[in-house]
Nucleic acid binder design. Structure first.
Lengths: 115, 115
DNA sequence: ATTCGATATGTTTATTTAGGAATAGCGATA
DNA sequence: TATCGCTATTCCTAAATAAACATATCGAAT
C-alpha cells in the first residue's frame, strides 16, 4: 500500500469579544497555568515564554473582555500574584468544551470524505 | 443594555498530508483563483500577493500532496499557464464543504453557551 | 522602615518574515 | 526563428515580531 490517500484535518477556534480577538488555545493554557500557579511569572515559566509576553497577553485579554478574566494583586510579602476570576474560569471551561465538541465533529465528518 | 455578554467564535481548518500542513483557506482561495484565471501570475494579482509568494505556495502544496493539485505548463504563445487538476478540484470542494459544516456546527453550538 | 517577590513598562537587540527587484528559461505559434 | 507572457529562482532590502535586558513600582508582613 502506498501513501495514504487521505487528509487529516486540524482546526483552531478563537473566542472574540465583538470584533476583537479575545483568546485562543495558547491564552487559555496561559490562564490555566495562572490558575495553577497563582502568578503570571510562574505561569510564564511553565509556558516557556517571557514574563513580558505573558503579561501583555493577560493585559490584553482583560482589556478586551467585558469582565476581567484575572485579578492581579500587587505587593505583599509574597510580592503579589494573579488569580483567575469566575468569569475567567467560565471562559476556560466554555472554550475547552467547544474545542472538544468541534474536535469530535470534525473527526466524524472526516470519515465521510471519500478519497 | 450594556456590552453584549457573549463571545462569538471564529475558527479555521487545515488539511494536512501526514504531518505536513497542506493548505488552509488562503491556499484554497489561491487554487480557486488559478482555476478561474488559468495562471499563477493572474491569480496572484487577484489575491494581491506577489507572484513569488503564490508560486511558493503552489509549489509547496504540490510537493506535499500525494497527487499534484495543479499542473504547470511552460512556454507557448501565451507563455504558459497553470491548471488545477481533478485532485485539486476535489480538495477545493472537500475543504469548502468541511468548512461550511464546521461553521454551521459552531454556530449551533454557540447558541447553547450560557453567559 | 525594610524586605520580598511579583507586577509593570521602557529600551534595545536579534530573529523571522515578507516584499520587491531583477533575470533566466521555456516552447507553441505565427 | 522571433515573439510573447508565464513559470522559475536568486538576491537584497524592509518591515514586522519576538526575545532579551534593565529597572521601576507596589504593599502586606515582619
Amino acid at each position: 500500500m502506498t501513501k495514504k490517500n487521505k487528509y487529516n484535518i486540524q482546526f483552531r477556534i478563537w473566542f472574540f469579544a465583538g470584533n476583537e480577538k479575545l483568546l485562543g488555545i495558547g491564552r487559555v493554557e496561559l490562564l490555566e497555568k495562572i490558575k495553577e500557579t497563582g502568578s503570571i511569572a510562574n505561569a510564564a515559566k511553565l509556558m516557556k515564554m517571557s514574563y513580558r509576553q505573558a503579561w501583555q497577553m493577560v493585559t490584553e485579554m482583560n482589556e478586551r473582555s467585558n469582565k476581567p478574566l484575572v485579578e492581579k494583586q500587587l505587593g505583599g510579602k509574597s510580592g503579589g500574584g494573579t488569580i483567575v476570576t469566575q468569569a475567567g474560569l467560565k471562559v476556560i471551561d466554555e472554550f475547552n468544551k467547544m474545542k472538544n465538541k468541534v474536535k469530535v465533529f470534525i473527526n466524524e465528518e472526516s470519515k465521510k470524505i471519500k478519497l
